[in-house]
Design a binder for these strands. Structure first.
Lengths: 145, 145
DNA sequence: AGCACCTATATAAGCACGTGATATAAATAT
DNA sequence: ATATTTATATCACGTGCTTATATAGGTGCT
């Protein structure tokens, strides 16, 4: 029965994800691009290979994305002094600004919807915040499922 | 301060959405396609225009998507007896089967991650289920944000 | 040192799935 | 009846991925 509850929670989360996709205004950058910027913002400079492992995307896809982000000035590519093969990707101030503006805009939209829920429902979601953070902090191993 | 809590919850939800995108295995069908199938499954046959209003997609895009789904046998297009212009789109049994298999697979993956959280965190998420359902049931007006 | 192999990234060609502009056909209004 | 509006379809195109392959740097063995 605890299993059933967890399954129900998983389904609810998945459906909420779908709702969020429809709720947020599409941006000029793809979901992968935003997620990549977020990773660089929170974890500092990363190699292309690291980003490939994080995002569900192929290596050439990530190379192309990094190239477009660099052209737009949102990230910069630097050489790794200790290994001539790798390119270290770092977010720029402009990238941080852009990311923050998107986050604020989306949070405002979602918060507006939250405000329309009942106070009890709002409280339940506020309480669940910690758990959501723990969940979304979980690393993803490519071998699973 | 309640505002701040709601904002924090909104941010946590948004970040969880991003995590879910990375967590789930990409399917042969796009997120829009799955969301469209879900809408047809839960609300019954809909017109192309209804689907356009639900999903963040243009009308030609939806016409194309419906065409591909129909070619794959997941939906069928029928004429509306009361209005010769509209095509009513309905999910087929094969479409339902496919949708169910995806939902089960994703729920299993998310549930596996939930099981790795602390019991308290699990309980918080189980409790928040009702609120998530209420949130994801909210209709989206195109004029907002 | 020299050679084979491995690893990190880049390049190239192609395809899926969107977009905007426009066409067509049915309904509605005058 | 004709004009206008509405619902869908078609067309040409672009972005952002994909797979396959190339290139250049690192590693290990003799």
């Amino acid at each position: 029965m605890r299993e059933a509850e967890l399954d129900a929670a998983a389904v609810a989360l998945e459906r909420t994800m779908s709702w969020l996709r429809r709720a947020v205004r599409p941006t000029e950058w793809s979901a992968v691009a935003l997620s990549t910027l977020d990773a660089l913002d929170r974890e500092g400079p990363l190699r292309v290979t690291d980003l490939v492992a994080r995002e569900r995307i192929t290596q050439p896809g990530m190379t192309g994305l990094v190239g477009r982000l660099a052209d737009a000035g949102l990230v910069e590519r630097n050489a790794d002094p200790s290994d001539g093969r790798v390119t270290l990707v770092a977010i720029t101030p402009a990238g941080r600004d852009y990311l923050r503006s998107i986050r604020e805009q989306r949070a405002a939209l979602v918060a507006a919807h939250l405000r329309a829920l009942t106070p009890e429902e709002q409280q339940l979601l506020v309480n669940a915040c910690r758990a959501l953070q723990a969940l979304s902090a979980r690393p993803l191993h490519p071998e699973e499922v």
